[in-house]
Design a binder for these strands. Structure first.
Lengths: 201, 201
DNA sequence: CGATTCTTTGAAAACAGTCAATCTGTGTGG
DNA sequence: CCACACAGATTGACTGTTTTCAAAGAATCG
């Protein structure tokens, strides 16, 4: 299973087999069953986490008692609660598997050693952080500027692989709209696609 | 004016006078008049930018033609369009001064050299990135989970210094609500505060 | 299958947005 | 120093989107 991460890294950076061996030694493979929590609010999140296969989500319970999805992570994505990872404080978030998944985890201290030993990895790490920052900026813009329908379209375009893979109500909470609204939007769209594609030739 | 940045840095990291001199040499001081744009959509943003005094905002025009505020920056804050800075692509965003301001800017290449030469600065830089990531995560949660009123309260609590310093309609666009709604919320709150504080003893 | 979870649907209500008019404060030029 | 212009804020009436609530329908899993 570690091969998934190795392939991922080889595709993105110049890395020797020795360096890969260092990483492998620092990491652990973890199988997560469906609905199994990897992180529960109150715990401290002290690991780097790479999704080798499956699908996880990061969510948080609002003051209204409902769950709101901050982020999904599928094959070859990284997933962290930045707040807890960074400050070592108990997390306000939860991470759970949406299907049987395999993740590769690395304790924070070991990860930091790796970053020192392998400059290319450090560079990649920085790039990932920046990409994440950009994605957040775009998402914030979308949230403050778009209607429910626009957000729906954007999500489908940006994460085509996720839309059909996770429960609808989680996508709704990711977009900040109710499940009913999302259900209606989707219905509308299905209808329109049907109309457009049924022209007679 | 560079002293503002020097003081800022001394407060946060161990830094020698020689190192500060390096930074000073790489930076330029720029005065920005009220409403003057520092960045216009289409341009490339290739600098690090530190607000020594005044107030700027980063905003973007939506498909509806309205402007949406992504971020404010006041004294001792950094401001960037991550997307353009990172990828060197033309920006979709605008940056303008909301009052006469002084900013300290450093070209990207020189900044990267500084990061190599001054490890403590590099560490600070990383911390800032992480803090920004955390703030974004919290803001996204707020946007997907909160009503207009909750967002209003949270903004006032999180950025007390900004609320009274920038036009109301910009705060509204930062929260993703209309100026009228924000105006009404504020009125409600003023009324409630009056009621609470006028109890007879 | 049977039970649970998820989605859909309809009707009513709440919330926030739009439009348009008015008000307020600030700065400018006569 | 006043009057005017202008940007920003407020207000009311209305509209429209989205939420909520409740019930019924699929789908999924053991």
């Amino acid at each position: 299973m570690f091969e998934v991460l190795a392939t991922y890294l080889r595709k993105r950076i110049e890395i020797t087999d020795d360096e890969l061996e260092l990483i492998r030694a620092a990491c652990a493979i973890r199988a997560v069953r469906k609905w199994q929590p990897m992180l529960q609010a109150g715990e401290i999140w002290g690991i780097k986490c790479f999704v080798a296969s499956g699908c996880l989500r990061l969510y948080r319970t609002g003051t209204d008692g409902k769950d709101y999805t901050l982020r999904f992570a599928v094959d070859n994505w990284w997933l962290t609660d930045l707040e807890s990872y960074n400050q070592g404080k108990p997390s306000s978030y939860n991470i759970e598997a949406l299907m049987a998944s395999t993740v590769i985890v690395c304790p924070k201290e070991k990860w930091m050693e790796l970053l020192v030993k392998i400059p290319a990895l450090s560079k990649l790490h920085e790039t990932l952080m920046l990409n994440n920052g950009e994605a957040n900026q775009r998402r914030i813009f979308s949230l403050i500027s778009s209607s429910a329908e626009e957000k729906y379209n954007e999500f489908k375009k940006t994460y085509p692989g996720i839309f059909n893979r996770v429960p609808l109500y989680m996508v709704a909470s990711h977009l900040g709209i109710s499940r009913e609204t999302l259900s209606r939007l989707r219905k509308e769209h299905a209808k329109q696609n049907k109309e457009t594609s049924s022209g007679n030739l």
